[in-house]
Amino acid sequence: MRRGPSLFNLASLGLGLTFLYAPIVLLVVYSFNDSRLVTVWGGFSLRWYGELMHNEQLLASVWMTVRIAALSATVATLLGTLAAVALTRGGRFPGRTIFSGAVYAPLVTPEVILGLSLLLLFVAVGAPRGFWTVSAAHTTLTLCYVTVVVQARLASFDRSLEEAAQDLGCPPWRAFLLVTLPNIAPAVAAAWMLAFTLSLDDLVIASFTSGPGATTLPMRIYSAVRLGVTPEINAISTLLIGLVATGVIAAYLIQTRGVRRASR
């Protein structure tokens, strides 16, 4: 039997979580600060949120960012799921090492390198930089995350269910669509969410591959941050954090329900 957590364990958990959450909590709290100064509490106010609503440039970049994230997450989920199927079920095929290398490497490759190399590609083929180039770049970045998430689920999926469907006369692709896909759907949905938020967050790759007229939200936040800490950035950050946290917790609940159903 495992012993329960000791005092030392509880202390490390407490300190660890405080370290992770304190800066975020402070940021959120100070977004409601009426004073412009970071360290002076001037009373509760929503004025910075009100000012955001009138910032047309900012709203335009939010819309641009969301569109890029939705498109790139969708393409990455399609390609990443295919890659996961090939890696879990393809056995040893020629070129497998290069393939899995290309799939996992973007996970850890520094973003400046991904950004620079993609920019050179777009310059070489003469693609006008903007919405499409950032979307393609983000698809490349997020594809590997999708593969890892889906692969973990596929590996634990009982293959015999699909084989049973085929024994009963179901063509393989239909068996995949009707039996396997519904089973891995929670993982695929979670992977899409992950890809979406990664794209939403990315500053470095977007800066390299974007052009005039396609400024994303992180690019706007970055140029504002360079000029100093302002309550407006706190407000937009709080909105983003709230949005993402809601999405992640929802995805978590969906996934745990899916796992429970699958194990029943």
């Binding site: 975020i24 938020t197 967050d201 992180p218 936040i221 941050v225 954090i241 993402v244």
Partner: peptide
Amino acid sequence: PFWTSFLI
């Protein structure tokens, strides 16, 4: 926290 923006 990993899901919330790195930049932020």
